[in-house]
Every structure is written in structure tokens, then in C-alpha cells.
């Protein structure tokens, strides 16, 4: 009799813990669904063609987000142009040139830390090197800050992807008499292309919602401008500003901006995911 009661006790403990685990999942996923749900609800009701065709309005009046969207696009492009080549080359060095070197493990470690370092600190850094000396906020500074965030993401994925390329492919190319850089550029990059593109897409997804590093680099601009040497409007900043405004019009623009950013991020990460899974399967 004693044995069965012990068994029952164990089974009961098991059920309790498993129920807790299911509850945790329901709670966690539920909260996240709640967030997405209210975002969709508030965002979709505030989306309208005007959002994409008009400039950001003064507080309290209606308008759109065109200048903010364009500013964000331009700074994202600059960030990728700065960060992606550096990240790819650095990842190449780690994967192809640095076998077993101590320096490489230091670089890898530091990169992993930069990957999750607080982005507001990156903003302070770029402020010190690109805003303070020049004397004004600028789109270039914003792009640079985003570029600094792109580098670790691209570096990490590039290294991982290059390591997936079979050694036999390298050996075969060397046997044909190709030099190291030719092997990397013509053979290894082609074999790992979709992986590298995945890394860049993930980096774009990461920076398209970054707000903190733009607060004191790009600042904001109520008007549209191509001039990247001046303060530049951007979606995250406008969301931050309008969400804390008391006016309904501004708040609904903030929701519209939020849903634009979230959709961009989701589309980018789903594309990246399907690119990398079609590669591995």
C-alpha cells in the first residue's frame, strides 16, 4: 500500500509541475498575443493613405509620416552601407584567416558583447564622435549609430555561414591553383550567399526599430529633407514624441508608425528565416 501512495504522490507532483509549465506557456503567449492584438487593432484603424503621403504635422493636427519614413529609410541604408561590408569582412577574417588565434577569440567575445550591449550607450558614443565635434545633430550621425549596431549582427551570421561551407569545396578550389582571396570571393561567398543575405536582413530588422541611439544623433526634423548633414526625421523618434502627446491625432499617428515598424520587422525576419531554412533543407 505504501508503495502505491508514494507512486501517486510522485505522479501528482509531476502533474502539478507540468500544469504549471502549460500555464506559463499560455500566460507568456497570451501576453504576447495581447500586445500584437492591441497593436493591430490600434494600428490598422489609424493607417490611411495620408500616413504615407503627408508630412508630420504640428502637435494636435492631422497629417502623415512621409518625412519620418523617408528619414528612417535613408538612415537604415546608410547604416547597412557602413556596417554590412565591415561585418562581412570581419566575419570572413574570423572564419577563414584566424584559425586558432587568440586575437580571434577576443574579437568574437567582444562582438558577442556588442551584440547585446545597451543601444543607448552606442548613441552616446556616436554623439561624442560625430555630433559634438561638428556642433549639430545629423542624419549621418544617426546612420553611423545604426551602422555600429549592424556590424555585430552581420559579423556573427557571416562567420557562422562561412563555417558551414564544406572544407572539400575550399580544397578543390585551392587544387585548381586559386589564391586564398579568390577562393573566398568566388567560391565561398557564392556558396554562403543566402546565409550572408540572411544576416543583413536580420540586421535591418534589428535597426529599423532602434530608437535610443537616434535620440541624440539624428534628433528629429519636422520637414522632409535629403540633406543628411542636418537633423533628420525618423519613425522611432516620431513615435516616441507623438505617443506621449495628449492629442488624439498625434497618438493615432504614433500607432500607425508602430504598426509600420512592426510589420517591417516581421516581414524581414520571416524572409530571413525562410531564406536560411531553404538553404539547410
Amino acid at each position: 500500500m505504501k508503495d502505491t501512495s508514494k507512486y501517486r504522490g510522485r505522479a501528482a507532483t509531476n502533474s502539478v509541475w507540468m500544469a504549471l509549465s502549460v500555464a506559463a506557456t499560455v500566460l507568456g503567449l497570451g501576453m504576447l498575443c495581447l500586445i500584437l492584438g492591441s497593436l493591430l487593432w490600434n494600428g490598422l484603424t489609424s493607417l490611411s493613405p495620408r500616413v504615407f503621403t503627408e508630412m508630420t504635422p504640428p502637435p494636435g493636427s492631422a497629417g502623415g509620416l512621409l518625412n519620418a519614413i523617408m528619414g528612417s529609410l535613408m538612415m537604415t541604408v546608410l547604416g547597412v552601407l557602413v556596417g554590412a561590408p565591415l561585418g562581412i569582412m570581419a566575419g570572413t577574417w574570423l572564419a577563414e584567416y584566424s584559425a586558432g588565434s587568440r586575437l580571434a577569440s577576443v574579437v568574437r567575445f567582444i562582438n558577442d558583447i556588442l551584440l547585446s550591449a545597451p543601444s543607448i550607450v552606442i548613441g552616446l558614443f556616436i554623439y561624442t564622435v560625430a555630433v559634438e565635434p561638428v556642433g549639430r545633430f545629423s542624419g549621418i550621425a544617426g546612420g553611423l549609430a545604426l551602422g555600429v549596431i549592424v556590424i555585430p549582427v552581420v559579423l556573427r551570421t557571416t562567420e557562422d555561414m562561412l563555417r558551414l561551407v564544406p572544407t572539400a569545396l575550399r580544397e578543390a578550389s585551392y587544387a585548381l591553383g586559386m589564391t586564398r582571396s579568390l577562393v573566398i570571393r568566388k567560391v565561398i561567398y557564392s556558396a554562403a550567399r543566402s546565409g550572408i543575405v540572411t544576416g543583413i536582413l536580420l540586421a535591418v530588422a534589428r535597426i529599423s526599430g532602434e530608437t535610443a541611439p537616434l535620440l541624440f544623433t539624428a534628433l528629429n526634423n519636422q520637414f522632409f529633407s535629403w540633406d543628411m548633414t542636418r537633423p533628420m526625421s525618423n519613425l522611432p523618434y516620431v513615435i516616441f514624441q507623438f505617443a506621449s502627446s495628449p492629442y488624439k491625432d498625434s497618438q493615432s499617428l504614433a500607432w500607425a508608425g508602430a504598426i509600420i515598424i512592426t510589420m517591417t520587422v516581421l516581414v524581414l525576419s520571416i524572409t530571413a528565416r525562410s531564406l536560411s531554412s531553404s538553404r539547410t533543407s
Binding site: 569582412m89 577574417w93 584567416y97 579568390l182
Partner: peptide, 28 residues
């Protein structure tokens, strides 16, 4: 030559990671 240049560029890019970290700490 192109081999040497490519290798040097790759190494230099990897060093920017260290440069960024020291830049962040120094500027702060």
C-alpha cells in the same frame, strides 16, 4: 597583391570591433 590586400582588409575590419569597444569606453 589582391590576395594581400583582401587579407589585410579582412583583418582591419575585424579590428574595428575592438576599436568600437574601446571607442565606446574611452568616449564615456
Amino acid at each position: 597583391l589582391s590576395d594581400a590586400v583582401f587579407g589585410a582588409l579582412a583583418r582591419l575590419s575585424a579590428m574595428t570591433v575592438l576599436l568600437i569597444l574601446s571607442g565606446v569606453i574611452l568616449s564615456l
